[in-house]
Design a protein around this nucleic acid. Structure first.
Lengths: 151, 151
DNA sequence: TGCAATCATTCACAGTAAGAATGATTGACG
DNA sequence: CGTCAATCATTCTTACTGTGAATGATTGCA
């Protein structure tokens, strides 16, 4: 039978670079699967998360914070609005701006996502000592800093 | 002036889950930018890497190893072939199979990618002690195991 | 021999995101 | 105070990935 010999891994597999890339992709996908029953995708959660910390933000601010084109925020906000998760209101001080706010339902959805994240976190870190977990998170934050990400 | 107040970060930012997802995406993108001048994209490098460790593999084996549809491997292999990086030959023992092999140029390209990865690795881990790096990589491998990834 | 399975390939299609064009509103400046 | 450029949201078009279905060649087995 063909194709049964296990495929060998190569040098790059041992670099943190490679591992971070692959793990990141799988984690995101895992998360995406878990939130799908809520009718959400990762970008939706990204916006919900930002709004939880920054109520009444404009769409443009959200776009730059998410590193995404403004036109994409329109669609994401449309979908969240039709889910009843957010409310759009024109900023009375600047009627060009659309201010976004979480609704009660939006807060509930965000809480669900946080809970899902905690579950996933437990899966990811299973078998690591508390000290190891803290070291990992500290190292990740350091790496994020090296990448110019502000955590 | 609007939009100047820094956007606050939220609870999820402190989880390894969130950090891994975001860092993974940024690392992949950084890598993609660096290999772009070579005419390569991440999937191309993925295939090159597999072929470096597994010469004369069939396209289907590569597809399953890469977790990707066979039809996509066709396109990636087409492009690598037109770059002169790989050679396609029918397997004489099973003429349905197309066996892929790195050419000299393919090996050179792969070496370039390995070098780029090393550079990126140095950037990522800058400021971490040797012991911290080892601990990080060990922890990442552990996490990968929890995700069912075989590193 | 004939038939189902396998591998590669092509094609049509869905999903995601960016960018350009449009329209409303604002603020600055003559 | 009126014009004009800049800003924000929105729509529409387009590019890019990746999947899945249909096709064709080849194989192995009943």
């Amino acid at each position: 039978m063909h194709g049964m010999a296990p495929v060998k891994k190569a040098t790059l597999e041992h670099t943190a670079t490679f591992q971070l890339g692959t793990i990141g992709a799988v984690v995101s996908q895992r998360f995406a699967e878990k939130i799908e029953p809520l009718g959400l995708k990762p970008k939706h959660v990204g916006l919900l998360t930002l709004l939880a910390a920054n109520p009444a933000s404009s769409q443009l601010d959200m776009a730059t914070a998410m590193n995404v084109a403004p036109s994409l925020v329109v669609r994401i906000a449309d979908q969240l609005e039709s889910l009843g998760a957010i409310e759009r209101t024109r900023d009375p001080d600047d009627r060009r701006r659309q201010t976004l706010r979480l609704t009660e339902r939006g807060r509930a959805l965000f809480a669900e996502c946080a809970s899902i994240t905690r579950d996933l976190e437990a899966d990811l870190l299973a078998g690591l000592q508390i000290a190891e977990r803290k070291a990992l998170i500290a190292a990740l934050r350091h790496v994020a800093g090296n990448l110019g990400l502000a955590f």
